[in-house]
Write a protein that binds this DNA or RNA. Structure first.
Lengths: 197, 197
DNA sequence: GTCTATATCTTGATAGAC
DNA sequence: GTCTATCAAGATATAGAC
């Protein structure tokens, strides 16, 4: 299978289109023909770049997780305090949601996971693991620095925080609301913070 | 359109099957033929009971919301303290998740909302509205009784609480985890409670 | 790398017999 | 109320020419 770093220009267009379509409609909600129309080639030509749909989506998810890790690294470099880091993290989701109420790619695929090919579920699992591990470490550091409440285990806070972000997008979309994950994160953060910004 | 209270025995079987299939695979993940196989009649016979797929799913969602409202009423009758009520509420989601990692029906439909018929999105909207209104009122009462933290608006806590429950199911499923919404709710509740149980 | 043509299957939905 | 037969559309995927 191709790695997302070795894609031709057209293959990258295909991945871009697929990523957006999944975030809007889910795995079962888009077809090779939808992609063909977007990138301007015919349906069978897509198969030249990605022989199966599940391979394509697997590459999409791998690139998505990689970009997320780049963002996480950037947040650590730009912010020192745990609250600021978590707030910047929530902004990642908010920026996604602001694009036509797009869901997190792996939030959408996670919802569909019970009927998805195993190679895709594997990537979804990896995404959540990466995010929960990072959040746990950031929260842990915040607790040690006396910035965050120590009443809960860092891992439990991480799970609650990520859950509320993913859930806020689902509910916001279901209610056609412009209010998205950032607001929910802010509420949650204010209950966890010991100091005021 | 038929009301869910006036369904024939077979129509009810159809609604039951559709409900379960949506919670497992989503709107775009099941077909009339899937239902036909489950209830034991042929595909065109389903159309006799529900002429279109979107009508069927609309009835499914209406019944789902109605049953939820019955559960909410029951919780108010069985528990007096806000914490106990919210904990019992979380148990509703946990019981659903324990059935083959079923998602909340409207959580799944909410994720798919951008590509769903409008009459279904309407029902999804109603479900979330009913739940948020109820949660807000329960939390409000808990704050007035000195049981819950008053630092946040009751509506904001309601949105965070529901978001974390819906999101926990999505992430749990994506990670194939047996740990579900109940655990996340417990973490969240402990940060909101002023008294210990 | 892209195309046309095609295979095969599944989809939601309809017509009409029983 | 259920059936068989059928439809038109759309799905993933392959074959082979250019």
């Amino acid at each position: 299978m191709k790695h997302f770093s070795e894609l031709s220009a057209m293959a990258e267009h295909v991945v871009n289109a697929a990523e957006s379509l999944i975030q809007e409609r889910g795995y079962n909600g888009f077809s090779y023909d939808d992609i063909a129309r977007i990138v301007g080639i015919k349906k069978p030509s897509i198969h030249h770049h990605f022989s199966t749909k599940s391979e394509l989506v697997s590459v999409v998810a791998q690139r998505y997780t990689h970009r997320f890790r780049e963002n996480l690294l950037q947040i650590e470099g730009q912010h020192a305090k745990a609250q600021d880091r978590l707030s910047a993290y929530a902004t990642l989701f908010e920026e996604t949601y602001k694009i036509d109420q797009h869901l997190c790619l792996c939030g959408m695929l996670g919802a569909e996971a019970s009927s998805l090919p195993e190679n895709i579920v594997l990537e979804v699992h990896r995404f959540f693991e990466v995010n929960l591990d990072w959040l746990t470490q950031i929260i842990e550091a915040g607790q040690r620095a006396g910035q965050l409440n120590k009443a809960l285990f860092s891992r439990d806070i991480a799970e609650t925080f990520l859950s509320s972000l993913e859930g806020a997008m689902v509910i916001g979309r279901g209610m056609r609301s412009t209010i998205g994950p950032a607001k929910i994160a802010q509420s949650l953060l204010s209950t966890l913070s010991l100091t005021t910004a």
